[in-house]
C-alpha cells in the first residue's frame, strides 16, 4: 500500500446535547480511524444510522467533527483557511445520492456545470462552456442538451451530470454518497461503469458510501464496515467478503438476497410446494 492520501484519525461526531438541551448528545460517529491510499477506492458500508454519511460529510468539510483529525494530502482539513480552503474545494468533490435534489431546478445544466469554475475564477465564459461540453461528452450525454433544465433528464442521466460536475474542477478526491441507490439496476450498472472508468482515467482517490454490499464489492479496493457509528472491521474487499472476521459483517453478508442464491442453493433442492419434483 502506498502512502495514505486521506487520513482519518480518531474522528467522532456528537449531535445535540447543547447547553440548553435536555437530551443526551447522540454519538453519530465514534472514534473512527481509516486511511485511503492514493488511487484507491475505499468502500464504506453500513445500515441506516451507522454514521457512514456523517463520516463522509466530515471529510467533505460540511460537518465539523467533535474530535479527531482528518488530513488530506498531509493537510488538516478543518484547519484550512483562505487560499488553502479554496484549493481544498477544488481538490475534493462530492457525488450525492438523490438525482431529484442534486441540482437547482431553475438552472440549466450548463449553468450548473460552469458554476464551480466561475466560483474559482477559472477561464473565460467561452472556455468554461467548452469545458462543460467536453465533460458532457465524456459522461456520455449529448452536449446539445446542455441548455435543458435538470427535470428534463432521467435519474441515470442526472447522475452522469453529477459525476461531470464533480470532476469539472479537476479534483484528486471524489467522495460518493450512495450515488446509484435511487436508480434501476440496469441504469445503476452503467453509472457504476462510468464512475470507475472516470476514476481510472483521472487517477482519482475515492470513498464510496453505500448500504448495498454488492455494489461496494464491485467498486471498492478496500472496505470499511460501520455499525452504530463504530468501525466494525476494515480490510481488502475480497478478504472481508469471503472471510468476514466479525459476526456483524457475517450477518450483514448473509442477509443480502442474492440472485446467485438460486443458482447455487435452490437448483434441485425442491423445498417449495410448487416444485416440479
Amino acid at each position: 500500500m502506498s502512502e495514505p492520501l486521506i487520513d482519518i484519525k480518531n474522528v467522532s461526531k456528537e449531535f445535540g446535547g447543547g447547553l440548553f438541551s435536555r437530551l443526551a448528545p447522540f454519538k453519530a460517529v465514534s472514534d473512527i480511524s481509516l486511511s485511503v491510499a492514493r488511487n484507491q477506492t475505499m468502500g464504506i458500508v453500513g445500515e441506516s444510522g451507522s454514521g457512514k454519511s456523517t463520516l463522509l460529510r466530515m471529510v467533505l468539510r460540511l460537518i465539523q467533527p467533535t474530535s479527531g483529525e482528518i488530513t488530506i494530502n498531509g493537510q488538516n482539513v478543518w484547519a484550512l483557511k483562505g487560499g488553502q480552503l479554496k484549493a481544498f474545494r477544488r481538490q475534493v468533490q462530492p457525488v450525492f445520492q438523490n438525482p431529484a435534489s442534486s441540482f437547482n431546478p431553475r438552472h440549466s445544466i450548463q449553468s450548473i456545470l460552469t458554476a464551480p469554475l466561475e466560483v474559482h475564477g477559472i477561464g473565460t465564459p467561452a472556455e468554461r462552456r467548452d469545458r462543460a461540453v467536453e465533460l458532457l461528452e465524456r459522461v456520455g450525454l449529448d452536449p446539445a442538451m446542455r441548455h435543458r433544465l435538470p427535470h428534463q433528464f432521467s435519474g441515470g442521466q442526472k447522475q452522469r451530470i453529477a459525476i461531470a460536475r464533480a470532476v469539472i474542477l479537476g479534483p484528486t478526491v471524489v467522495l460518493a454518497d450512495e450515488p446509484t441507490s435511487a436508480l434501476d439496476v440496469s441504469v445503476q450498472a452503467q453509472v457504476l461503469k462510468l464512475f470507475s472508468d472516470i476514476k481510472d482515467d483521472l487517477g482519482l482517490t475515492t470513498i464510496f458510501v453505500s448500504h448495498n454490499l454488492a455494489v461496494i464489492r464491485q467498486v471498492s479496493d478496500r472496505v470499511a464496515v460501520m455499525q452504530h457509528g463504530r468501525l466494525v472491521e476494515e480490510g481488502p474487499v475480497d478478504d472481508i467478503f469471503d472471510n468476514p472476521g466479525n459476526d456483524y459483517t457475517r450477518n450483514l453478508i448473509a442477509a443480502v438476497p442474492d440472485p446467485a442464491f438460486a443458482r447455487r442453493n435452490r437448483a434441485g433442492t425442491a423445498v417449495h410446494p410448487v416444485s416440479p419434483a
Binding site: 480552503l85 442534486s102 458554476a115 474542477l169
Partner: peptide, 20 residues
C-alpha cells in the same frame, strides 16, 4: 436539497448560495 450541499462543497460564498 443536495444542490445546496454541492454548492458549499465547490466553495460558494454564503451570499452567493442565498442568491443563486
Amino acid at each position: 436539497k443536495q444542490y445546496v450541499e454541492s454548492a458549499r462543497a465547490v466553495g460558494m460564498s454564503n451570499t452567493r448560495i442565498l442568491v443563486r
